[in-house]
Design a protein around this nucleic acid. Structure first.
Lengths: 215, 215
DNA sequence: TAGATTGTTAATCGATTAACAATC
DNA sequence: TAGATTGTTAATCGATTAACAATC
């Protein structure tokens, strides 16, 4: 019998899943049909216990002592968990260098996301298409999202405009925001914001270099 | 007397600093010379205690009851902490769409990073310059980094090549890696890897949308 | 003075790790 | 059977929050 009330997956564990998935798929392609947590932990440098717990939390079948987990089963379970199967429509706001890169980023489809339209204020772009997607005027964000029932918005505008754009997206009924502007967005509780902030990343790198020098 | 052995700053607190900094600079530009933690907590939606502790941990002067912290002092202290002042040279590996975007990303300088060279295997690019930076053959990564004493490497190659590139960077003496490939890199303990993985970000967005539907 | 805000010590919460029994 | 590997319960660790005294 399969447990329905599985061990709750921590947020941290959830974020390790894409890495496990990538590796397991690689192994499966090479013909590995069964995988043990010690083997996976050796690959990633995680502890055996952590991998075992992570797998136990997501795998719908049990691991087999002396053998490990069924590779295919794990792959399927993680993919379902991550929601890569059903594609979710998203809008992109800001078609500068970064916005353009996102429009061209084909892997988004692999991760269950499809940009269906983009928005800008540049008159020369409005009404045209960019990488096959229509560019609309930013004033229509709320309207469009409501009409098309879009749930995800991507913010790729300068930081000065980010909060305004965020508010427009929310007024359009969006529930999740992928924010590339280096500002903290103020949103209601039911909205999720995932920040992609180079200032934070570079600070972490810088901190490590300073520590290295000190020690 | 200023404490030298300050409250240790947690990793989480450290990562909030770029957001505080951005906001404090904005306030300072508007003429706000003193700022209280309740005011900041209201802006971000953090708890007052958290902001107070974060500020206490980084501010070289003490906060003043009934008034708050000195805005300028906080800005200076956070900037020093984040290491945005002294520019660190970095190499970029992979000059595809993403690599190009990074080369054009002017804000990197604000965060203390400067890309000094890029590497690729595309024969048509080698020997030329891209956005003012020389493009060298990937086989020269280790050599170049060692000679120029580069400490930071940026990986913007397809996931299949990421680990190889990573190993080359490490052999060149690099200490910190900014990894845009959606794989977990295996590195020695003294190397810091900061992952920028869209698969993780999109999984988090997807999870929120699924939860929203369920509730 | 009264009250807003700071600083510090203790309690709670979440995630990881340790210990060990269960099983193929 | 012996031993590798799993699953589970308890202990530890790190970060946040609560409680409250100190201070301008």
């Amino acid at each position: 019998m399969i447990k329905s009330d599985k061990t709750v997956l921590s947020l941290q564990a959830f974020q390790r899943m894409p890495y496990y998935l990538q590796y397991l798929k690689e192994l499966y392609r090479e013909g590995v049909r069964t995988i043990s947590s010690p083997a996976v932990s050796a690959h990633f440098g995680f502890t055996e216990i952590q991998v075992r717990k992570d797998f136990a939390a997501v795998c719908s079948s049990r691991g087999v002592p002396r053998h490990g987990f069924d590779t295919k089963q794990l792959i399927d379970d993680i993919e379902t968990l991550l929601g890569y199967q059903d594609t979710k429509a998203a809008v992109l706001v800001g078609t500068g260098i970064l916005g353009n890169t996102l429009l061209q980023y084909r892997e988004l489809a692999d991760y269950g996301m499809q940009i269906v339209a983009s928005f800008d204020v540049n008159r020369e772009l409005i009404g045209r298409t960019l990488h096959g997607k229509p560019v609309l005027h930013a004033s229509k964000i709320g309207d469009y999202c409501r009409r098309m029932k879009i749930q995800t918005g991507i913010i790729a505008v300068p930081k000065e405009q980010a909060q305004t754009v965020c508010d427009q997206l929310i007024s359009g009924g969006i529930l999740a925001i992928w924010n590339f502007a280096p500002v903290y967005l103020s949103v209601p509780d039911y909205i999720l914001v995932k920040n992609e902030n180079p200032a934070v990343s570079l600070a972490l790198l810088s901190r490590h270099l300073q520590e290295g020098r000190r020690i």
